[in-house]
Design a binder for these strands. Structure first.
Lengths: 160, 160
DNA sequence: GCATATTAGTTATGTCTTATAACAATTATC
DNA sequence: GATAATTGTTATAAGACATAACTAATATGC
């Protein structure tokens, strides 16, 4: 009886500390949590520019690769083509990107950033750098390098 | 004119290699890509057990914290309470978790894993370990430790 | 002790992201 | 030259995640 009562107390007591060692043993759990806060912080930081993470990363690739095709862009960002269309509609509507018919392959559009597209991209990059400086402050360069190496390694493991 | 032509060629040529240095400078981009492949790989690995990542992580916390309340669970996993209800409905329907009324606070349910709940959880953990061993193979312990430290640091930076 | 506020779980619903199917136009392949 | 494959597109569906409002129970302030 007292055994039972003790067990119930132990089992049902509200606790402020929850044992999540079982989850913390997995890197995936740490990655999910870290990426989750990073994502929402970056989303908030970019919002004043009218950019979301997907439009922002698309814009960077277009600025850095003038004339890139929609399908190439989609492939590189792991975005399905139908979803890419919507993203580019948005970028084009804002006047940041132009679709131009390709003479040599009239199925494709070549993508170019406009002047204001390049300008907003620069602003976004500045914001993103500040955002990451904040989130990764206090870390040594060696730690950052290790992080990138590990993440790239993960990406590679599944490609095979 | 030839300048123009050259520029067009350069601009519109289909390319196999896309310059993503602009994106690769950001840790967030690496994290997104790495977590994306990790997530889809783990989802596939757990699917035969009838678990999704959310149900799986909820189950672990219930197994490790017998009697935990729904709201505590939701808070710890950053899941909104209404969404937690659906997850627990699923776990309960499968016979892996029981909701039990708490005598001392009849608003709450205390959550307990059943025997088969604990068994499927063990299987899932084994699968998850194999999945992570695969994804993080070839990495030194020191690198893993650094990764965890960095990720925890990110989590902490935004809490403030 | 009682009115008011708060909390737990729930339902219904909305939004945002990502995936799938089908189509026209164009190009590649055999 | 017939057939297949590719590009961009539309429409639609599936998913995860968020919000509002409600009931039942408990906590708080006077």
């Amino acid at each position: 009886m007292s055994r039972n009562k003790a067990a119930v107390d132990e089992g049902t007591a509200a606790r402020s500390i929850v044992n999540d060692d079982g989850l913390r043993q997995f890197l995936g759990y740490h990655m999910k949590r870290a990426y989750s806060v990073l994502k929402s912080d970056l989303t908030k930081s970019l919002e004043p520019l009218g950019l979301r993470i997907t439009t922002y990363s698309s814009l960077i690739l277009i600025v850095d690769n003038p004339g890139i095709r929609q399908s190439e862009l989609a492939r590189n960002l792991d975005i399905e083509r139908p979803n890419m269309v919507v993203i580019l509609d948005e970028l084009e509507q804002r006047g940041w990107v132009n679709r131009e018919r390709v003479e040599s392959d009239r199925r494709s559009y070549a993508l170019f950033a406009t002047l204001s597209g390049r300008q907003v991209c620069e602003k976004a990059i500045t914001i993103d750098r500040a955002h990451e400086a904040r989130l990764f402050q206090g870390l040594k360069d060696a730690q950052i390098k290790t992080l990138i190496a590990v993440l790239n390694n993960v990406e590679r493991q599944v490609g095979e």
